[in-house]
Design a protein around this nucleic acid. Structure first.
Lengths: 224, 224
DNA sequence: CTCGGTTTGTTCTCGCGTTCACAAACTCCT
DNA sequence: AGGAGTTTGTGAACGCGAGAACAAACCGAG
């Protein structure tokens, strides 16, 4: 498979601009490939992978083409090879340290979520401002005071923070995270965070998702 | 999510085709308006509301224009009036009954999430296939057997189901939900669900969100 | 009543993302 | 070796959403 090296352009590798929409789908492909691999499937066509990932095959091929030419015409894709290439592109071949702030119901659920560890993320600390939660052990980690944030980030070179606090505390937590040098935030609090441009924020909002479903549900009822 | 143009004609109001991107932002505006209202603010301009919602004001005005003309030129929007109009459009002026299946860490967190009740959703049942979880009381509700699904859906006219099970069980749960008449599913399991076209599915995937952050994080490091 | 200042609703343009369709490239069979 | 059958990678067309810009509409002062 030295062919890949031939098609490489000016930059050594992986420095092309990948569209945001494609980036959002790469993890889906990665998961589908992992499933296929676990089923002992060594090769798959773009059509098979597209079905497994829930997209259309043309889109899949175009997405993969941004990474390079990792398939073989007339044959398809080598499952493990493609899986590695996507993982490398996303950056989950090594582990990313993650800190979770706010260890309520949701924070505990996140801490216990096995999908993180198996997908390139390692929870290095659980922090909570509430002294009542201090020293509880969740998922094998002691819950520490929020003020430990700076030390944790420094010692573990944490770049990614997860906010699972109530809405009122979220902005303060975000500010502190940014001050400590965290540059990517996953926010579960139902509030719009204000952060500098160079910091990436992704929001997961449960009630918004339900409201979107409710809108469509309402329209279904109207036509019936 | 392709929403077919079902009834594009003949409707008094609020039946216009609202773009999917706009629908996804309406709940954000709704939340921002609620916050403003709680602060005692009676009127706001598109610029103020846009800042509170984290979008640009031209986009906000365009979004609102799909609903109708609810503002006053030279003045702005009446906060409570606009809030009601958006709530009505989304369909959260009445309560939607919701059933949650899979009462592990995440399911419990969801059951306890107060944002549901306050935003037009009412959790009517918690179900789990595991007998060990049976009869536990979570958020004031007894955890019932998964086989109760059909009865619950019928008795409460449930249209929206939440799946918080492990990946392996999720497709079976979805199939059963569809068979019972549920037409909107919020899926937290890391798997692509296969459902009929008329059923809406929204996916919340924690590790995918983190992987997207990791991709950008990796690129930041590469340039620095 | 009129005029200046303000803010909405809408039109227009541009860029991104999706999809189609097909040439290029590979395998297998004869 | 050559041709038939597959499947990838990509150029081109198309549609949707974002943002800029402006006319229409409203308020208040004089």
């Amino acid at each position: 498979m030295e062919r890949a090296a031939v098609t490489a352009r000016t930059s050594p590798e992986s420095a092309r601009d990948i569209p945001e929409a494609t980036v959002a789908r790469l993890p889906v492909y990665l998961r589908a490939l992992t499933t296929l691999s676990e089923q002992g499937i060594g090769t798959c066509s773009s059509e098979e992978l597209a079905v497994a990932a829930g997209v259309n095959s043309a889109k899949l091929r175009k997405d993969l083409s941004y990474l390079g030419s990792y398939g073989t015409r007339g044959v398809g894709y080598d499952v493990d090879y493609l899986r590695y290439q996507i993982a490398r592109e996303i950056g989950v071949t090594q582990d990313w340290p993650v800190v979770i702030v706010g260890i309520g119901n949701l924070g505990q659920a996140l801490a216990n979520y096995s999908g993180f560890r198996s997908r390139g993320f390692r929870v290095v600390a659980l922090l909570d401002a509430d002294p009542a939660r201090r020293d509880e052990v969740v998922a094998g980690l002691e819950v520490g005071p929020f003020d430990d944030l700076e030390r944790i980030v420094r010692e573990h070179s944490v770049a990614i923070g997860v906010i699972a606090t109530p809405a009122l505390a979220a902005q303060d937590v975000a500010d502190r995270m940014v001050a400590c040098g965290i540059t990517s935030i996953l926010n579960f609090a139902p509030i719009v965070l204000n952060v500098p441009d160079q910091v990436d924020v992704r929001k997961v909002d449960l009630s918004i998702e339900l409201q979107i479903l409710a809108y469509h549900e309402q329209r279904k009822g109207a036509t019936a």
